[in-house]
């Protein structure tokens, strides 16, 4: 008996959706989870990545080249946002909500002016699929899963095993104290925001071939990425992945049973319950 006979054929899509949830949340892990910036422009950073992939595809015919440029363009935009606006609001996290909301509107409207509201398509850079144990695996979706795993380990290594990561964690813990041990706290915060933007841009480009682009593309992912970071616990990569498995997995499975809209509503209910019970679970785990 093949695996396909006992596992639904779409089960790989559950894994892909979980990977997408992780992918879209990694950038927000830096900007919101670590820096405490309520970054409502995160969806538009994804949008910039996706449209960069589209534009490079239009210019050169190469989507893969677009995947290279997407994080660079998003990082550059992130640098301008941080140096131009957010650095004045580091000590006022709630004000970052209003500022990033304004930035998100400007970016979204700018993209709509340039590309119109018409749907755009980024080609699958590789195309095709392979079969294994009776299951079908589209190559690009496999690459999304592999890239997500690599990025999670990369982020973990960066934050836990490099001097940059050590200085970043010190800055996040106590920026004033960090300054007094020769760490440029402002520079570290900018660095973290730019990395978050680059990860967001890369995520947007990677998921563009499996979605249809329009200027509202980023908004669709914004809510889910915030849910993942909040449920997982700000600043914890392990929590982020766990929350992505719960929320992404629930959405994927529920979509088999009910409509997409109902599934998303149910995921929100799961998220609300998750927020409610999370402190109790953390307390219980710490008591063990």
């Amino acid at each position: 008996m093949s695996i396909a006979a006992v596992i639904p054929i779409d089960s790989f899509n559950v894994v892909v959706l979980i990977a997408v949830f992780v992918l879209i949340s990694l950038g927000l892990h830096f900007t919101f989870g670590l820096l405490n910036i309520v970054n409502l422009a995160h969806g538009e950073i994804l949008l910039i990545g996706a449209y960069t992939a589209f534009q490079v595809q239009e210019w050169t015919g190469s989507v893969l080249l677009g995947m290279v440029f997407a994080p660079i363009v998003a990082a550059a935009v992130g640098l301008v946002i941080d140096r131009g606006v957010l650095r004045f609001l580091y000590e006022r996290p709630l004000d970052t909500l209003l500022a990033t909301f304004g930035i998100s509107v400007v970016i979204r409207q700018g993209i709509q002016l340039r590309y119109s509201a018409n749907p755009r398509t980024v080609q699958d850079p590789i195309g095709g699929s392979f079969e294994l144990a009776g299951l079908n695996f589209p190559w690009w979706r496999v690459i999304i899963v592999v890239a997500t795993i690599a990025l999670v380990f990369g982020v973990r290594a960066l934050l836990d095993h490099t001097r940059f990561g050590l200085h970043a964690r010190a800055t996040i813990a106590n920026p004033d104290l960090a300054e007094t041990v020769r760490i440029n706290a402002d520079g570290m915060r900018t660095g973290l925001f730019v990395i978050g933007a680059a990860l967001g841009g890369l995520a947007g480009a990677l998921i563009a071939p499996i979605n249809t682009l329009n200027p509202s593309f980023g908004v669709l992912f914004l809510v889910n990425s915030f849910l993942v970071v909040i449920i997982g616990g700000k600043g914890t990569l392990r929590g982020l992945v766990t929350a992505a498995v719960i929320l992404g997995g629930s959405l994927a499975v529920l979509q088999f049973v009910v409509s997409t809209v109902i599934a998303q509503i149910l995921v929100l209910v799961i998220a609300i319950v998750g927020v409610r019970i999370r402190p109790i679970m953390v307390e219980a785990l710490e008591a063990r």
Partner: peptide, 16 residues
């Protein structure tokens, strides 16, 4: 507030 929450003693010394 003389220490960084979340960092080990060794990490503090490494920073300094």
């Amino acid at each position: 507030d003389s220490v960084f929450p979340g960092l080990t003693v060794k990490e503090h010394l490494s920073i300094a």
